[in-house]
Simulated assay, not measured.
Amino acid sequence: MAVRPLGSGRYAVDSSSGATYVVDLPRGDCTCPDHEIRGERCKHLRRVALEVTERRVPAPGKRRADCAVCGHESFVPESGPAVCGDCWLERGDIATDRETGDTVVVYRLTDERADERYIDAAGCTVAEYPKNEGYPPDDPVVEVVYPFSGEADSPLDERPRYAFPYARLAVREEMLIE
């Protein structure tokens, strides 16, 4: 049985009989008669689960693509930035600005590229910003905050955010817990 991802946790399963059934993995549904009539977990559901477990097809919410950071083919979110799990940044991750040595905290990883994100205050894109020269213009944009600016107890949402190309940040093995 061949399994093809359709998106949103749905998969087409081409059976050996020539029929194609649609499996909705999050709902545990299949369009085959065995599942619809008997309500049993059919072989198509089991096959999709096996293919996902063996990482031959993406899990629900994921798609196969090249990571925008490392370039390796992997499973990335269906929507949002095409960044693999190894390169993914979470809110609260701590990084060092490679240009200044300042410590910054990740606010969010965006689905914008540095050559797409316009900075009104600077009158240019993130990629065109003078201190970002030499970083890939197609890098994902990471919004960061400076943790030591402003009130010590103010949450990340209340601090000014700045846009950086991903490669400008050296991610550390630390995280700020809000």
Score class of each variant (00 low, 15 high):
40 E>H: 06
110 T>I: 06
78 E>R: 11
34 D>I: 14
47 R>W: 07
92 G>L: 01
95 A>F: 03
53 T>I: 02
61 G>M: 08
93 D>N: 12
55 R>C: 06
99 E>H: 03
74 S>T: 15
72 H>F: 12
103 T>N: 05
55 R>A: 09
48 V>H: 00
66 D>S: 15
109 L>S: 12
104 V>C: 02
44 H>V: 10
89 L>Q: 10
54 E>M: 12
89 L>V: 15
108 R>V: 13
75 F>T: 01
69 V>I: 07
51 E>P: 00
85 G>S: 09
69 V>C: 06
77 P>F: 08
82 A>L: 09
44 H>S: 02
90 E>W: 09
97 D>Q: 06
106 V>M: 08
47 R>Y: 04
75 F>E: 04
100 T>V: 02
85 G>D: 13
36 E>Y: 00
105 V>G: 07
63 R>L: 13
51 E>H: 09
35 H>M: 04
41 R>I: 12
61 G>H: 04
93 D>E: 01
109 L>H: 11
34 D>V: 15
82 A>P: 13
45 L>T: 02
39 G>L: 06
100 T>P: 10
61 G>Y: 02
57 V>D: 02
112 E>K: 11
45 L>M: 12
34 D>A: 13
46 R>G: 05
77 P>H: 07
34 D>G: 10
35 H>A: 10
81 P>T: 11
78 E>H: 06
67 C>Y: 01
61 G>C: 06
109 L>V: 14
69 V>Y: 04
107 Y>Q: 03
64 R>Y: 02
78 E>K: 07
96 T>V: 15
100 T>L: 02
108 R>T: 15
97 D>C: 03
66 D>Y: 12
55 R>K: 13
